[in-house]
Amino acid sequence: MHTHTLPNDFNLCGYDYALPQELIAMHPTHPRRDGRLLVYHRDSAHIEHRHFRDFCDVVPRDYTLVCNDTKVLKARLYAHKVSNEARDENLREILFHTTHMRGESSETSSTKFVVQIRGRVKQGAVFRIHDTAKRPTRFCMRVLELLDNGMRVVEFESADSSAPLEIGAVYAMLESCGHTPLPPYIKREDTLADSLDYQSVFASNAGAVAAPTASLHFSKEDFARIRALYEVCFVTLHVGAGTFANVQSQDIRTHNMHSESYALTPQARDVITGDAKLLCIGTTAARVVEYFWRVRESQGLCDLFLHPGNVPQRMDALLTNFHFPKSTLLMLVSAFVGREEVMRIYECAIAHKYRFFSYGDGMLIL
């Protein structure tokens, strides 16, 4: 099918919009509850302008909230390359992604990991990891394999041991040496504040390299109030950097969706298979709910791509942020509300100067 004959719902161009640069949030709103909340009522197509402090006033009590409790790793590392000839003083940026599962017996015993390394790199190259003050540490990273997609398979080592580090030790190393992996469009160094701001108050299962950003709007106090008023259950989806990947195909249905590791508790399984009205806190929680509803497997890899040709079957409401043009996240919201209606809502949000993307304002679809 030629581009011009593609229905707009499936044409990448149908998801484009112009966003003024000044509406891209580079820092979060403080306090969190002062963030703005656009409320969209699906039955009437009515838009309300509220704040997150009004959340419990606008969400009916009969909803069960589904939250993603993934915890963002300090996944951005800095290192210098070690070679026989001389030490390369230039610091290279490394983004830790995930455990390398191929050929491994289990995730917990894995010693191979997938990373991105800025700049050219050869198989066998060794890098000395730096700490948060950019001083060399006792940790090294060895490049084992160059993957076709630009990723690198690596092992981490410590001067204290000859054996490669397993996942627990690698996570501890990231915690001590790593930086908060702010989204690529936030062009600034991360700060101590980001290590708190870019983490939900209910984050508990380490493994994400990007935050489930709809969750960032709740303070400890506000979430305690929510738990007192609503049923809440937790799922885990470790958000990967693929969440920022561009859709390359003009026909969005041919997009190769990234996969992310997920798991559900028995309580969450019972809630989703029951008859509760579900409000998904974020697109990641929505994808877990919808993927589980289809496959009925409590853990695995979620590669579900929701768009107007593959609409949600289980969720009843969604809290989400404002997403990039032409992104799979914008297509997910369009699957729930309809593409034309989403573009109308976004026009309204821009006209009312809502703040966009990870540190931006929110949108509640009821």
Score class of each variant (00 low, 15 high):
2 H>N: 09
6 L>E: 01
6 L>I: 10
7 P>Q: 07
8 N>P: 04
11 N>F: 05
11 N>I: 07
23 L>P: 08
27 H>T: 13
28 P>E: 14
29 T>G: 03
30 H>A: 09
30 H>T: 13
35 G>F: 02
39 V>M: 07
40 Y>Q: 05
41 H>E: 15
42 R>E: 09
45 A>Q: 13
49 H>Q: 14
51 H>S: 15
52 F>D: 02
53 R>V: 10
55 F>L: 06
55 F>S: 06
56 C>V: 05
57 D>S: 12
59 V>G: 01
60 P>E: 12
61 R>P: 12
65 L>F: 07
73 L>H: 06
79 A>N: 08
79 A>D: 04
83 S>L: 13
84 N>R: 03
89 E>I: 12
94 I>T: 08
96 F>K: 05
97 H>F: 03
100 H>T: 02
105 S>M: 14
105 S>P: 00
109 S>Y: 12
113 F>M: 03
120 R>D: 11
122 K>H: 12
123 Q>C: 11
125 A>D: 12
126 V>N: 13
131 D>R: 00
136 P>W: 09
137 T>N: 08
137 T>P: 01
144 L>T: 04
148 D>E: 14
149 N>S: 09
153 V>N: 04
153 V>D: 01
156 F>S: 00
156 F>N: 03
159 A>H: 10
159 A>Q: 08
164 P>C: 13
167 I>Y: 07
168 G>S: 13
168 G>D: 15
169 A>S: 11
172 A>I: 08
174 L>N: 09
176 S>L: 00
180 T>G: 02
180 T>R: 10
181 P>K: 08
182 L>V: 09
182 L>P: 12
182 L>Y: 07
184 P>V: 11
185 Y>M: 06
188 R>E: 11
189 E>F: 06
194 D>N: 09
197 D>A: 14
198 Y>F: 14
199 Q>T: 11
201 V>P: 09
202 F>S: 10
205 N>T: 15
206 A>I: 15
214 A>G: 11
216 L>P: 08
216 L>N: 02
217 H>G: 13
217 H>D: 14
218 F>E: 07
222 D>L: 05
224 A>I: 06
226 I>F: 00
230 Y>Q: 06
232 V>G: 05
237 L>A: 06
237 L>N: 02
238 H>I: 00
241 A>I: 08
247 V>L: 15
249 S>E: 13
251 D>H: 13
254 T>V: 10
254 T>E: 12
255 H>W: 07
256 N>E: 14
262 Y>W: 05
262 Y>A: 05
269 R>W: 00
270 D>T: 07
274 G>A: 10
274 G>P: 03
277 K>F: 04
281 I>K: 01
281 I>W: 01
283 T>Q: 02
284 T>S: 04
290 E>K: 05
292 F>I: 06
296 R>Q: 14
297 E>Q: 15
301 L>C: 06
305 F>H: 07
307 H>E: 07
308 P>L: 13
310 N>M: 12
313 Q>T: 06
314 R>P: 00
314 R>G: 02
323 H>M: 12
328 T>S: 02
328 T>P: 00
328 T>I: 00
328 T>C: 00
328 T>E: 00
333 V>N: 02
338 G>L: 01
340 E>C: 03
341 E>K: 15
343 M>E: 10
344 R>H: 11
348 C>T: 15
349 A>E: 15
352 H>N: 15
356 F>S: 14
357 F>S: 06
363 M>D: 05
